[in-house]
């Protein structure tokens, strides 16, 4: 699954490769809408805490379409919140996506170009904290010092602003979606994790056009 998504994103990026190339760095903040954990009548939330993100992109912005490959590092502890039981485990994520940008207005040389973006890739989640035989809520969802890789899809919108002849600024909001975790955050026997992980990321970046 992950492989197919990646190949699709790479294909889209390859389409845009013929255009002028630009690259840059981004930074921002991610807020996640966690997964729901249920065990009988008891329910709670698991996921990752809001945290900064940082990354880099490289790609091309054409007259109408653009494509890029983006790497994002997300901080943020894994967490379990069920009633009064709260636990967390130090964690990190690496998100690599290949995305298509659809510019909504203006030509290639337009100073401000709004766009929508969509794509997909892989997300690697790593629990780095010390796992314990018991933490609050572990009888429903357990945090573990392990890692797992899962597909990620993203979509969003933003605006591209030219700065000088070759400078580029971007501000955008994206939603990174992934299925539930199985290792770093796992449903304990008798419990279920429901939903998708949504990471709403607001980013701002700067780059150079080559």
């Amino acid at each position: 699954m992950i492989l197919r998504v990646f190949l699709a994103a790479a294909a889209m990026a390859a389409v845009a490769w013929a255009q002028p190339f630009e690259a840059g760095v981004v930074g921002g903040f991610a807020v996640q809408r966690g997964l729901k954990v249920e065990s009988g009548s008891i329910s709670g939330t698991v996921g990752f805490k809001e945290a900064p993100v940082a990354g880099a992109w490289g790609g091309e912005a054409g007259r109408r379409w653009g494509g890029e490959v983006r790497y994002l590092y997300r901080w943020g502890d894994a967490r379990v919140e069920i009633g009064n039981d709260r636990a967390s485990l130090t964690a990190r994520q690496h998100i690599i996506t290949g995305d298509l940008l659809l510019f909504l207005k203006g030509g290639r040389e337009a100073p401000v170009r709004p766009f929508v973006v969509f794509g997909g890739g892989v997300r690697r989640v790593e629990g780095t904290g010390r796992q314990q035989a018991f933490h609050p809520g572990s009888q429903y969802a357990a945090l573990a010092q392990t890692s797992e890789t899962m597909p990620v899809g993203d979509f969003g919108f933003g605006v591209r602003v030219r700065a000088g002849r070759r400078g580029v600024f971007r501000v955008e909001v994206r939603d990174y979606l992934s299925p539930k975790t199985d290792n770093v955050i796992a449903a304990a026997p008798g419990s279920k994790l429901k939903g998708l992980m949504h990471d709403i990321v607001v980013m701002a970046g700067a780059g150079i056009q080559f």
Binding site: R130, Q131, Q132, A133, F134, S138, A142, L143, A144, A188
Partner: peptide
């Protein structure tokens, strides 16, 4: 970690 093997300490 010197702790019992459990679901949260696999």
């Amino acid at each position: 970690n010197g702790e019992l093997v459990t679901f949260s300490n696999p």
